[in-house]
Design a protein around this nucleic acid. Sequence first.
DNA 1: ATGGGTTGATAGATATCTTCTATCGATGAT
DNA 2: ATCATCGATAGAAGATATCTATCAACCCAT
Lengths: 297, 297
Amino acid sequence: MIDKLEFILALARERHFGRAAETCGVTQPTLSAGVKQLEEQMGVLLVNRGSRFQGFTPEGQRVLEWARRIVGDSRTMREEINSLRHGLSGRLRLAAIPTALAMVAALTTPYREKHPNVQFTIYSRNSIEVLELLDNLEIDAGITYVENEPLGRVSNVPLYREHYRLLTSADAPLGNRDSVSWAEVAQVPLCLLTPDMQNRRIIDRLLKSAGGESRPTLESDSMILLYSHVRTGRWASVMPAKIADTLGLTDAIRAIPIIQPEAVQTIGLVVPAREPMTPITAALVAEARRVAPQLSG
Amino acid sequence: MIDKLEFILALARERHFGRAAETCGVTQPTLSAGVKQLEEQMGVLLVNRGSRFQGFTPEGQRVLEWARRIVGDSRTMREEINSLRHGLSGRLRLAAIPTALAMVAALTTPYREKHPNVQFTIYSRNSIEVLELLDNLEIDAGITYVENEPLGRVSNVPLYREHYRLLTSADAPLGNRDSVSWAEVAQVPLCLLTPDMQNRRIIDRLLKSAGGESRPTLESDSMILLYSHVRTGRWASVMPAKIADTLGLTDAIRAIPIIQPEAVQTIGLVVPAREPMTPITAALVAEARRVAPQLSG
DNA sequence: ATGGGTTGATAGATATCTTCTATCGATGAT
DNA sequence: ATCATCGATAGAAGATATCTATCAACCCAT
């Protein structure tokens, strides 16, 4: 039965019978039959079909909610029993927004020292995708903004606060300043993240409320790409202080605090709002609580 | 998979492979094989066996906890989907302590008017058994004391407060009084519930703290039996005011308030502490919240 | 000790269910 | 009109599950 519920989960994320079947490691007829069997047991159609997947019926959506929960619980149970025998082991799947990638190591490093048998898989995703992956049980935890856009069915542990810096060459127009305003930043051609990233939306909002407009010369979904452009000394960007520090800058590049307003965004760990958590996730939450005071600033 | 978890639940309540199998509607080898399969999947022994059932291993106890949850959720899901189609229908299973039996009708009657397709099964059990039945998913809700002995993993809705009366013939020693003390009651030969009932333990405690001792002439686990003895005019008992009122007394029998101390016990509805509840249970909780103010006194 | 009763495990046969491959019909795009 | 895509269906092969029958260990009483 639980495996049929996994079919529903796969179908929800793939929205396609064939692909859903593939991710479940079965053929498409098998998945079709599984869904159909669920429908017979429930006595209701769960999926609207018309020669292709057309979403879930209202009943299907409720079953989907339950499936998330039941499948999640059954995995947590297995993990818990496993931990009782072999200590903490398995794989911790994590997704972080690009601007937070640099600080993930502050979490994984002490974690690994305590639990050397846990392996990590870490995805770089935008904040919406992080929540989707969490919903679909494809990751155990996410790292994203915790106080802006709605989070949904998760609980969170604040980790640190993001302060913004103008990264620019020392000999560029604003290069000699000790601080700049958002209004001034709005005048500079910038390299920014793509608009699907919440960081970009935050910066757009700040620029707009300072009377400016966001007209980035260059967009990318990769911080590495933005950073490598800035390093040439010919481009400028707005980045969180923490990532600028981590990446390290040449002498010729300056990271100038942006004030007026002094904008701050909290980044935190998000985990499914369900008790109990898997032991692997619980240990990550504990670690997050431990390191948060050291990171904050 | 879920059906195997049901085997674990059945085994926990029956503590016997054969009987557990029977309640699951399978043969004993089938249940044995199911448990064994779970053990193989988990990689741990779940049940201590030595030619007979000897309880669960620590891992087995964890699996049992998860099984309660997962099986409960899967039933709730089915019920919820069913309610979406057919409105509220199915069976509401309830257990109440004997002293509360008389007031169950105050709950079931308005419930039935709103949801005529729901059928009821109502057990009379002691307070400990009520909680066990709840744990084992054998009932949807219980009615018992909510503030004395520990309740465990349940949430509760207070329903009314139990006040005690001495039921005795008008021409018996204390029969002409308007109120009596617990110390006085302790001198009277009483008909009381058996000591496995929390009501009896409460009364024993009250008698003892008034310097008396509990030496009931007659014990029974049935309120009907106690009541029928009192009605003869030759026996006395201590009962909650509510049940005395409901049963109705002859002219010759008086229900005398017992004061010093004026002892009060809260009775409430208890349901599994898990969200969401089955629609049938949720409706009962709503009903309980509605009628509680009218009952309290 | 010993025999009867009880308990859970095991063996083997049968039935059921599951999953696969192959193919079809419907739909939508070009 | 043609082609490609998608999900449903049919049929066969394989895997599982469940049953009956029986066994071995154990408990208890004599």
